[in-house]
Design a protein around this nucleic acid. Structure first.
Lengths: 208, 208
DNA sequence: AAGTAACTCGGACTTGAGACGGAGAGGAAA
DNA sequence: TTTCCTCTCCGTCTCAAGTCCGAGTTACTT
């Protein structure tokens, strides 16, 4: 039997969730709470295998509750349930030690599956959230030129080939003023101060 | 006996040379001429083993004579004798088929040795001329930046790192005017038109 | 003694580069 | 619809860059 605690300040959500979970023969709801503060008490007392935790609550956020639980009871698998995938608290929740991260748009069955996976060590991350995480992690290894627009990249490569603004404007069939605008944007995006350094950047990063 | 023909428009040189060569028991002077034109006639008639040919003569140059002889009598070893090592006709002479290339500053004994070496297939090239030939051959594989002075190379590498003239002047403890002078010289030596192209050159040739 | 090459600097000059601010057109997403 | 991004372009302005000229200094070679 999988021992579960449900923490959510919306009573209707909490009750409904519990009712559904009880229909599954492998799951036993051993506790519930309507705030993060109360949730920590219940969890530390019942020592459940899995916790379903709402992220946004009136009395103490899910983040704080998660942190406190992980400090004293790190074996616990906390599944975060939230309404918005672009919530700014996604990453703090992960950092706090949440094990899985689901949206409330997920079907009841998905939630059950997430609980069962949690006990065997598999975490479930909502695709859109996973995407956000991925791009976030990549941001550390993100090269400055990745934020260049396609047109700017074209111009940058021209600079890397030693072309002047005039030559670039002729090659790309645009005005020299436009080239200057692109160059200015490129320089500030790359964090360099002139085209020569931009050319050096191109070759140092093997863009050619 | 080594059969030799001497071609030189200066009578005193010709006579002196012949007189000296005759003192060597292995050499026999079988003909002489005071112009390239006449020289060809004598050579084709006498079929000597070796020819001592002056490069600069009034009637037909040694170059032309050498070419004509090599066409009809290629086995002949023609030794070019000239006064100046930086003569512009050095390479045309070699191309025409001259076998050895000596300066008139060479000692009489050196000339005799050159003759004896010629018959056994060894050619003798004046060191300075050889040097000129070498650097000439190397010029094909010579990178433009090889002719940069050490200081210019320093400046070029700075450019390759994206430094401005001001920054270079501070790094090398010289005036910005001096930097500009170096940059100008660098650009013309590399055959590029601005510092950006110079920076590209640096990276394309792996100078950093 | 004379020549050559490298390094240094000066002044005057032209021009390309880049910054700054503004702006319109088109497309994609909320 | 509105917002946002991209691409496009304009004018103005400042300054670094580069050219062209000359010139003085070493140091090495002839």
């Amino acid at each position: 039997m999988i021992r579960v605690v449900v923490v959510d300040d919306h009573e209707i959500v909490r009750k409904g969730m519990i009712a559904y979970l009880q229909t599954d023969g492998d799951i036993e709801v051993v506790g519930q709470a309507s705030s993060g503060f109360a949730g920590v008490e219940v969890i530390l007392q019942e020592k459940p295998d899995v916790v379903l935790m709402d992220l946004i609550m009136e009395n103490g956020t899910g983040i704080e509750a998660t942190k406190q639980v992980m400090e004293k009871f790190p074996e616990c698998k906390i599944i975060i349930l939230t309404s918005y995938y672009d919530d700014k608290q996604v990453f703090p929740a992960i950092e706090a030690g949440a094990f899985s991260y689901l949206l409330k748009t997920a079907s009841a069955d998905e939630i059950v599956q997430a609980i069962k996976k949690a006990v065997i060590g598999e975490n479930v991350i909502e695709p859109k959230v996973a995407n956000k995480m991925l791009t976030s992690f990549q941001k550390d290894t993100l090269k400055p030129h990745d934020e260049l627009t396609p047109r700017e990249m074209e111009v940058l490569l021209c600079i890397g080939n030693g072309l002047t603004n005039q030559e670039i404007s002729e090659k790309l069939y645009i005005g020299i003023k436009t080239v200057k605008t692109h160059v200015s944007n490129i320089l500030s995006k790359l964090g360099v101060s002139d085209r020569t350094q931009a050319a050096v950047y191109v070759h140092r990063n093997g863009l050619l």
